[in-house]
Every structure is written in structure tokens, then in C-alpha cells.
């Protein structure tokens, strides 16, 4: 595997979505190529930055209530 082939796989490698064969060849290349190895580390960091940066909200109480009610209401409708 050369650098170009390895670079294409980095994104899927970060997600643990390489096939077994791909992973073998990919890891083999990383063990020999420092540049691709640091690219891989960068990609992992980017994934972490995205995870941290997205703001998580709590659903508003009114929505929670209506979803809870929904299940029993639609029950009445269908019965």
C-alpha cells in the first residue's frame, strides 16, 4: 500500500469501518510511514473536536409531555 491509498482509508479507519484486509494493509503502512501515521492522528483529533463542539440540548418539557401523552392518545384512537 502506498501513501495515496492509505490516505483515502484514514477517514474510515478512524471510524473502525475498514474491512479486515484493508485494516491489515493500512496498519502495515502506518508502521512504516510516519507521515501517514500523523495524518491518522490528526483525523482522530478532528473527530474529537467535532464531538466536543456540537452543543447538546435538553428537549423542552412540553415536547416530553406531548410525546408521553402521544402514546396513550394514539392508543385510544386506534382502539
Amino acid at each position: 500500500m502506498n501513501c495515496n491509498e492509505a490516505l483515502v482509508l484514514i477517514s474510515a479507519a478512524v471510524d473502525g469501518e475498514l474491512s479486515i484486509t484493508e485494516e491489515q494493509h493500512f496498519l502495515q503502512h502506518l508502521s512504516k510511514c510516519g507521515e501517514c501515521y500523523s495524518e491518522f492522528e490528526e483525523a482522530q483529533k478532528t473527530k474529537m473536536i467535532i464531538r466536543e463542539i456540537i452543543v447538546r440540548f435538553n428537549a423542552p418539557q412540553t415536547l416530553i409531555n406531548s410525546v408521553m401523552q402521544l402514546t396513550s392518545l394514539s392508543q385510544k384512537e386506534t382502539s
Binding site: 428537549a59 415536547l63 410525546v67 402521544l70
Partner: peptide, 13 residues
């Protein structure tokens, strides 16, 4: 909120 409510309605059905 509308979208989530609609989703649960369908999901339950």
C-alpha cells in the same frame, strides 16, 4: 419539536 412529535406518532403506530 414538531418533527420529533410527528416521528414518535408514526413510530408508535
Amino acid at each position: 419539536a414538531d418533527l420529533v412529535q410527528e416521528t414518535y406518532l408514526k413510530a408508535y403506530r
